[in-house]
Nucleic acid binder design. Sequence first.
DNA 1: TGAGTCGGGTCAAAGGTCCC
DNA 2: AGGGACCTTTGACCCGACTC
Lengths: 466, 466
Amino acid sequence: MKISGASLDLNATEYGITLDPTFTMLEFDGLRVLPVQTEPLIPGHAPASVQVPAPQHSSVNLCAICADRATGKHYGASSCDGCKGFFRRSVRKNHAYTCRFSRQCVVDKDKRNQCRYCRLRKCFRAGMRKEAVQNERDRISCRREGQAVGTLTIDVLMQAEAFTHQNLSQNLMRDINTKKIACVGDVCESMKQQLLLLVEWAKRIPEFCELSVDDRVALLRAHSAEHLILGVARRSLPYNDIILLGNDFIIPFRGTEQEMSKVAARILEELVRPLKELNITDTEFVCLKTIVFFAPDCPGLQCAQAVRRLRFQAQVLLDEATSEQRGRFGELLLLLTTLQSVAWQMVEQLQLMRLLGKANVDSLLMEMLLGEEATRGPEALQASESDPEPLIFSTATESVLSRGILAEHIPMPNFTSVILPVPSSLPEDPLLPTHTGSEVFTHGQTADMTRETSSSLAMPTVHTCL
Amino acid sequence: MKISGASLDLNATEYGITLDPTFTMLEFDGLRVLPVQTEPLIPGHAPASVQVPAPQHSSVNLCAICADRATGKHYGASSCDGCKGFFRRSVRKNHAYTCRFSRQCVVDKDKRNQCRYCRLRKCFRAGMRKEAVQNERDRISCRREGQAVGTLTIDVLMQAEAFTHQNLSQNLMRDINTKKIACVGDVCESMKQQLLLLVEWAKRIPEFCELSVDDRVALLRAHSAEHLILGVARRSLPYNDIILLGNDFIIPFRGTEQEMSKVAARILEELVRPLKELNITDTEFVCLKTIVFFAPDCPGLQCAQAVRRLRFQAQVLLDEATSEQRGRFGELLLLLTTLQSVAWQMVEQLQLMRLLGKANVDSLLMEMLLGEEATRGPEALQASESDPEPLIFSTATESVLSRGILAEHIPMPNFTSVILPVPSSLPEDPLLPTHTGSEVFTHGQTADMTRETSSSLAMPTVHTCL
DNA sequence: TGAGTCGGGTCAAAGGTCCC
DNA sequence: AGGGACCTTTGACCCGACTC
């Protein structure tokens, strides 16, 4: 805050009392030696117009303190740069000088640095006002400092994202009209691919890799449905009323299977459309994705506080990435409630279709989307819950219900599994060769990829992917 | 002028951590403007686009960035000449500033030159647009409108909120230990009270009253569960591990009925705890509530765009109410996904208990929370759906499932009802006499209130409440 | 039409920088 | 550890096209 209105007054008083009892700023306004010149200035016209006692080197051109060449009026007095700087520094730092002699030192160009007390006094007497010295301002120089609130950076997130998009440009090449309409099986295949990519994406975030295995698994399980929806919505941004899957199939707004049409319509209407209107950038997208990913309320999280910090960093990054447009940050964040709603509807739909035998849901989807372990049926899961609440239904339908919301907050039981090594930092080359990437993720080679990524076990689970 | 050499250091200490140096403000080019509204605003009324929390005097004359005297609207925000020039120079020269502190510097008349990063960011947040800065002297013929935020104000929201809290202080008087533990019936009673209060709250927002009846009903139905949870979380903030209902019953963290304990635990853990940590203010609370309320994705909404604008205004108000603390706005908004999750779990739990006969769910709860009309069973609702999708289950269990998520986006069929008059603007005295309020909402008089509020029909519905 | 608004621009006098 | 020559930024003020 403002220090020393008081101390400066004290300072001035001190000068006034010891030297010149009549010394005050107001009086100086009156008995100013130099003309106070506040008349309307004509632009381009020198302010020296009025008072011209001496022809050439009028006093306006001379420093009123030391008679050096003046560079203009400063703080109320025509002065040189030296006296200007001296006055500013003295006032800013609230310096208290003392005269070693009898306070009658000559202050001129040569001797102005011999007595700071007398120089400052002459500044005041020449009309300089301490009020004209402003607050310290921002630095101009371009040297950079300051550091991050956390370690999460846009760069890391963008690189992780780039990895999952090596097939995107290829898809864009092909005409959208030549793509085939997806059946339920195609959708499931695409989801599986994307979930594996999500795991790979996460593994490229060093902060994720530093978490415990259980927490990594918990995070991957918790909001995978949102990530699928978010990803598909982003991929579909360039098109109209068409959802483009990761394996190059499409879901049109109309004319698809009933089971998928509702979710598809909501994706297009409630997510793709707003995202189009916002014209979301890549930076914003990865921030949103990261915010969804580091979900501190995720059930069974051991280190929820660390996850909360990471999400905080991510949302601050998004805030900064959007700060040029009022309301944009909020609009993007509010899309997450919509995303959650659509994702849950998709999960319920999937669960329903699985129970009706309309969809062949494999173990990875079971674990990450439906929140169940592939090796067990829903009954086994229920039996393993520690909650003593009596079972209300024992039919498969209960599973639909409980998977939706209730069971989301039942911690998964740990089970032994093979954990593949996790990189402790970013790999030397975070991007796989483009060739491999585009080949692996092309439709028709899904099985290869699955086998490749989870090689040590026949059955893919989140644990084995890590 | 005042001297404040120490202020920066003070700030630095206060802010603590600092942030990423690589950030630049002006790296984006083609950002579009948000939910574009070109609606005709009342000329001459031009509400201050942004206003500082406190003053209610003519904020139109104050600079939205630094609160200096404004010289008019510049680049989309009411601002002073200094901020006008600063914004133009920054945009023209494509400056990239860096905050030396933690990007939450105070920007006011005295300190506006201390951090150009934070000043520029505040310019954007106040509504200034890069596009409004022209390159040369040639003017763009089309005189762009100043993007006014809207008519929603903190004052109106706070007054509406005050109405619903007339009984709060009374409750606080009584010792928390003397309160009784709620049974399921008490919870349902409390919910009904609170839902009626929600209707009254909404009716005190002029912008709500200007919507069509169908839209008003749709909004009230859409997120009532979230409002119940949000309200109960806020009411419980002063206590530890105890949920305080509106009718003065309590739900302890442990020792309540199984059906309620899970939801109660999540409310305490995932909502009350973070809200305590954030120490949410009343202003922030009403903004959050309003954001939840004006849900543009709400099914069956005719005028979704208007609702979107209102939510936009509300989130900008929240942003401004939180702008002094970095990350706070985002943390508050992210609580809404948690709120949604908890609310849905509560609805499923309630649905379950209703089906099991454990809870006596009356018609208002049915309509607002479970999304069904009281006069019909679930079968009737399904039969009225226009969607030709074949029924999969015809048991009551299907209803549980579909109510959860699927049916949320099935538009409710219209039905004739009695509509009580809606005030077209704020009533002369927006607050009912305290006497009436505190009596009506005291526990034990719920039946009276219900009868009073929906007097024209024996059966309360949202329509009749309006 | 004439006052009001909001783009543009200018430049005195603030500021900061950095070698001495 | 200042001093001061030299450069940058600020903002009060003005102009002019356009609107009401």
